[in-house]
């Protein structure tokens, strides 16, 4: 078989394209960005099967929720880290919940997708501020979609809804 050298060019390109990390916040950086000057105490949270089922029923998110990433904030409220499925890897984000149970802020901590970086823009994240467990939190409903970033928008929206469901079933009455 006669090989055509030109056809090997794309493979050479793949090897030479550098990878880029996209870690925007460590845990400590996110905590201080969302609750400046506060101290944080990790919550020894152990979710029951019933609580996890409620979280799934409300959000539809299958990705397991890691309950060891919840902190009580000295100035009131909670700081929660969660992950949802992205196009290629998982998207790591943080949610700041105020003492009234409403979202104070969300931040994208790690994002390694080819596109959809618009979810980091303040205008999109700002839509979540003030939302609570009783909010619809539905893409193309009370949360606007970003064309070309639909998968990320959808999964982050569902993820935040799950975090609020977790707050409702496990944290609200322990405050």
């Amino acid at each position: 078989m006669r090989w055509i050298p030109a056809l090997t060019a794309p493979l050479a390109l793949i090897v030479t394209v550098p990878a880029a990390a996209a870690v925007y916040f460590t845990t400590e950086q996110a905590q201080q960005a969302m609750f400046p000057g506060a101290s944080f105490a990790q919550v020894p949270l152990q979710l029951t099967d019933q609580q996890r089922r409620t979280m799934y029923d409300r959000s539809g998110v299958h990705e397991p929720f890691k309950s060891d990433r919840v902190w009580r904030v000295s100035t009131g409220g909670y700081f929660v880290i969660d992950e949802v499925v992205g196009k290629h890897e998982r998207i790591k984000y943080a949610v700041a919940i105020g003492s009234d149970g409403a979202i104070k802020q969300i931040e994208i901590m790690e994002y390694r997708e080819s596109y959809g970086y618009e979810v980091r823009e303040l205008s999109w994240r700002q839509q979540f501020v003030g939302k609570s467990a009783s909010s619809p939190l539905k893409l193309d409903g009370d949360i606007k979609n970003i064309g070309g970033a639909t998968l990320s928008c959808k999964h982050i929206t569902d993820g935040v809804k799950r975090v609020l469901a977790m707050y409702e079933v496990a944290l609200r009455h322990s405050s």
């Binding site: 793949i14 394209v17 990878a19 880029a20 196009k87 290629h88 390694r112 997708e113 080819s114």
Partner: peptide, 8 residues
């Protein structure tokens, strides 16, 4: 296989 920069 897919990543940020390429897929196959």
């Amino acid at each position: 296989y897919s990543s940020e920069k390429w897929w196959a």
